[in-house]
């Protein structure tokens, strides 16, 4: 007994050390960016750029990115685009997943196959034609950019939702139907409330994916007024000088929304990421 306890104690020590290294590696870049964001430009490029505690802490970089570089406008654009994407994608995917999970129809496997194929193919393949389409419609530099986001968000939404719908028992819907409910009533009054956790999980994953989208936005919304966060950030570097202090401050500012979402909804995120990947 004593021997076994000693063994597990040793094991738990090595666990702790490994855990500490892991967390240090994962978190370190953020900590360092946070520290840099308070350093003066002189210190960042000076003789001693690796001090842990800033010599003359300053909020100048934050003021610059917020008031001069308009990072808040990018955050606003990202919010609009991500929220609208989330709303219509979740609605469309819920309808589709309900039909796939509850009804038998011809071409169902074909539809699922196409959904999976869309999730797999390189995003570069849609960008040329979509660019031409948007030029023709005059939709470049607008919030219509949320529509082509469907090619990256729809497949996984359908996937997560079908998994969730399959776990909801059919009996409830059948009794609703016996009471004379239409398919739409059944969906909104019975299935939707029961599937709410799955729908919510999907919404969060879609939101994060839309928030992170880069290629479509940088190509189609070339006007800085419509840049989202990732695109606006990438332009901080391509200017004539690289202002690391501002880059750091901007990174901190735009990471805060992500941080809040992760802190509040980590359970849903994990459930969304792993559904379909693991057989329960």
């Amino acid at each position: 007994m004593a021997k076994e306890n000693g063994f597990s104690l040793k094991k738990s020590w090595s666990f702790l050390v490994l855990l500490f290294i892991y967390l240090a590696v994962v978190i370190f870049p953020f900590i360092w960016i946070l520290i840099t964001s308070f350093k003066s430009t002189g210190e960042i490029f000076g003789d001693n750029p690796f001090r842990v505690i800033p010599e003359n802490p300053t909020l100048q970089h934050y003021a610059n990115v917020i008031f001069e570089k308009g990072i808040m406008n990018a955050v606003w654009n990202s919010l609009i685009v991500s929220f609208s994407t989330t709303i219509y994608i979740v609605l469309v995917a819920t309808f589709a997943a309900y039909a796939i999970s509850r009804f038998e129809f011809r071409g169902k496997n074909l539809l699922l196959g196409i959904v999976l194929a869309v999730a797999m193919f390189p995003q570069m393949i849609v960008i040329g034609p979509v660019y031409n389409l948007f030029i023709e419609l005059g939709w470049t530099n607008s919030y219509w950019i949320a529509l082509p986001f469907s090619s990256i968000t729809l497949p996984m939404s359908v996937w997560i939702l079908v998994t969730h719908f399959n776990q909801i028992p059919l009996a409830l819907e059948e009794s609703a139907k016996m009471d004379g409910a239409s398919p739409f009533q059944t969906l909104f009054k019975i299935v939707f409330p029961l599937a709410a956790p799955g729908v919510f999980t999907t919404a969060i994953i879609v939101f994060i994916t839309a928030w992170n989208e880069f290629v479509l936005t940088i190509t189609i919304n070339s006007n800085a007024e419509y840049h989202t966060v990732p695109v606006a950030i990438s332009f901080l570097r391509t200017q004539f000088e690289i202002l690391w202090g501002e880059v750091a401050a901007a990174t901190v500012v735009v990471t805060i929304p992500t941080l809040i979402i992760v802190l509040l909804f980590q359970r849903q995120i994990v459930s969304g990421l792993t559904s379909g990947g693991v057989k329960e």
Partner: peptide, 15 residues
């Protein structure tokens, strides 16, 4: 651990 693991995944790749 789970929270700190999710942050690198969640922040935009460009950032």
């Amino acid at each position: 651990i789970r929270t700190s693991s999710l942050i690198p995944w969640a922040i935009p790749t460009a950032v």
